[in-house]
Measured scan of single mutants.
Amino acid sequence: DTCAICRVQVMDACLRCQAENKQEDCVVVWGECNHSFHNCCMSLWVKQNNRCPLCQ
């Protein structure tokens, strides 16, 4: 699966965690819609949006 926000494989660290060298801290979360995201990506997304980027 791919993170619906950053488009990186969810089993890999997101771009932000890769840049900050925090790959082991990058975890996967699932929305109520069952789409998967990196927690970092979702945390930033929900500050500006309240819907899944794929379900909009």
Rank of each mutant, 00 (worst) to 15 (best):
D1M: 01
D1A: 05
D1P: 01
D1K: 06
D1H: 02
D1Q: 03
T2C: 02
T2N: 12
T2G: 00
T2R: 11
T2A: 00
T2H: 12
C3P: 03
C3R: 00
C3K: 01
C3Q: 00
C3V: 01
C3T: 01
C3E: 00
C3I: 13
C3F: 00
C3W: 01
C3L: 00
A4F: 10
A4N: 12
A4Q: 04
A4M: 10
A4S: 13
A4C: 07
I5S: 08
I5N: 06
I5G: 07
I5K: 13
I5F: 06
I5R: 09
I5P: 01
C6N: 02
C6D: 01
C6I: 00
C6K: 01
R7D: 13
R7N: 15
R7W: 05
R7P: 04
V8R: 13
V8G: 15
V8K: 14
V8Q: 10
V8N: 12
V8A: 13
Q9L: 06
Q9A: 14
Q9V: 09
Q9C: 09
Q9H: 03
V10P: 09
V10K: 10
V10D: 07
V10T: 13
M11W: 05
M11Q: 11
M11A: 15
M11F: 14
M11L: 09
M11T: 11
M11G: 13
D12A: 10
D12Q: 05
D12H: 07
D12Y: 08
D12P: 05
A13K: 15
A13W: 02
A13R: 13
A13N: 05
A13G: 15
C14D: 06
C14R: 04
C14P: 02
L15S: 10
L15W: 07
L15T: 12
L15Q: 14
L15I: 05
R16I: 08
R16G: 11
R16C: 14
R16F: 02
R16W: 04
R16L: 11
R16P: 08
C17I: 03
C17Q: 01
C17L: 00
C17T: 00
C17G: 01
C17W: 00
C17V: 03
C17S: 07
Q18A: 10
Q18F: 03
Q18M: 07
Q18I: 09
Q18W: 02
Q18E: 09
A19G: 09
A19K: 04
A19W: 03
A19H: 05
A19R: 08
E20C: 04
E20M: 09
E20T: 13
E20Y: 02
E20I: 07
E20G: 09
E20K: 06
E20N: 00
N21C: 06
N21M: 08
N21F: 07
N21P: 10
N21D: 11
N21K: 13
K22L: 06
K22V: 06
K22Q: 11
K22A: 11
K22T: 08
Q23Y: 06
Q23H: 13
Q23N: 03
Q23M: 09
Q23P: 07
E24V: 07
E24R: 12
E24M: 07
E24H: 09
E24F: 04
D25C: 07
D25V: 01
D25P: 06
D25T: 07
D25S: 05
C26Q: 15
C26H: 12
C26V: 09
C26A: 10
C26F: 11
C26M: 09
V27N: 09
V27C: 15
V27S: 14
V28Y: 02
V28S: 08
V28K: 15
V28R: 14
V28H: 04
V28C: 01
V28W: 07
V28A: 14
V29P: 12
V29Y: 13
V29C: 11
V29G: 13
V29T: 15
V29K: 15
V29N: 15
V29R: 15
W30G: 15
W30I: 13
W30A: 15
W30R: 15
W30D: 13
W30S: 15
G31R: 08
G31N: 15
G31I: 00
G31L: 08
G31K: 14
G31F: 05
G31P: 15
G31V: 01
E32D: 11
E32Q: 10
E32W: 05
E32N: 07
E32F: 03
E32A: 08
E32L: 03
E32H: 05
C33H: 09
C33Q: 01
C33A: 03
C33I: 00
C33Y: 00
C33M: 02
C33N: 03
C33K: 00
C33F: 02
N34R: 07
N34S: 09
N34P: 10
N34H: 10
N34Q: 09
N34G: 14
N34D: 14
N34Y: 05
H35E: 00
H35K: 01
H35Y: 02
H35S: 02
S36H: 06
S36L: 06
S36F: 09
S36K: 15
S36M: 11
S36I: 09
S36C: 09
S36T: 08
F37K: 01
F37A: 13
F37H: 04
F37L: 12
F37D: 03
F37P: 04
H38R: 02
H38D: 01
H38M: 04
H38W: 00
H38P: 03
N39I: 05
N39W: 04
N39H: 12
N39Q: 13
N39T: 09
N39V: 08
N39C: 04
N39G: 13
N39F: 00
N39P: 10
C40R: 04
C40S: 02
C40Y: 02
C40A: 03
C40E: 03
C40W: 03
C41V: 02
C41D: 02
C41S: 01
C41M: 02
C41I: 02
C41G: 05
M42F: 13
M42Q: 08
M42T: 07
M42A: 15
M42L: 11
M42V: 07
M42H: 11
S43V: 10
S43K: 14
S43A: 08
S43G: 14
S43P: 15
S43W: 02
S43R: 05
S43Q: 14
S43M: 06
L44C: 03
L44H: 08
L44A: 14
L44K: 12
L44D: 15
L44I: 11
L44P: 13
W45I: 06
W45N: 08
W45A: 14
W45R: 12
W45F: 12
W45H: 08
W45S: 13
W45Y: 02
W45L: 11
W45V: 11
V46K: 13
V46F: 14
V46A: 10
V46G: 07
V46T: 08
V46D: 13
K47M: 05
K47N: 09
Q48A: 13
Q48P: 11
Q48S: 14
Q48T: 09
Q48K: 11
Q48V: 06
N49F: 04
N49A: 11
N49T: 06
N49P: 05
N49M: 08
N50D: 15
N50S: 12
N50E: 08
N50T: 07
N50F: 02
N50H: 09
N50L: 08
N50Q: 05
R51H: 13
R51C: 12
R51L: 14
C52L: 03
C52S: 04
C52W: 07
C52T: 03
C52F: 00
P53F: 03
P53I: 04
P53A: 07
P53W: 03
P53V: 05
P53T: 04
P53G: 05
P53C: 04
P53R: 05
P53D: 03
L54P: 09
L54A: 13
L54C: 12
L54D: 15
L54H: 13
L54V: 15
L54W: 05
L54Q: 15
L54N: 12
C55Q: 01
C55D: 05
C55I: 02
C55K: 04
C55E: 03
C55L: 02
C55T: 01
Q56T: 14
Q56S: 06
Q56Y: 08
Q56L: 10
Q56N: 05
Q56C: 05
